[in-house]
């Protein structure tokens, strides 16, 4: 798994408005610049926020990627919960579910 590359892409998108523009026009050309698995490519392209969460994307990056796709806050939280239901528990990183959230 190339979690590092997934997170690097989101980090770059957060910092670079011109990259966001290119990403919106031709997502495939941007994605060829990153070493990503088929599962990661699919999760980014759909986007499947829940799967990205399960793959281990740091929440501080993921919440901005969700916002880029115009997820409202509650929908973002729900997408992560749905991701766990569909794909299982978080596979990597520190942002695992421990229970007890507000929403």
């Amino acid at each position: 798994m190339s979690l590092y590359s997934v997170q690097k892409l989101i980090y770059n998108l957060n910092r670079d408005p011109s990259l966001v523009e290119r990403f919106k026009i031709d997502i495939d050309s941007v994605l060829t610049e990153y070493k990503l698995t088929e599962e990661e490519l699919s999760a980014i392209s759909k986007p499947d926020i829940g799967l990205l969460y399960v793959l281990g994307v740091n929440g501080q990056l993921l919440m901005h990627y969700a916002a880029l796709w115009e997820f409202e806050w509650d929908d973002y939280i729900q997408a992560m919960k749905d991701g766990i239901e569909e794909h299982g528990e978080v596979r990597a990183g520190m942002y695992v579910r421990t229970g007890g959230g507000y929403l």
């Binding site: 969460y53 929440g59 501080q60 993921l62 919440m63 939280i77 992560m80 919960k81 766990i84 942002y95 695992v96 579910r97 421990t98 229970g99 007890g100 959230g101 507000y102 929403l103």
Partner: peptide, 10 residues
Amino acid sequence: HWPATPDSGK
């Protein structure tokens, strides 16, 4: 805090 996770608000 457990920010930006399903536990947000805990």
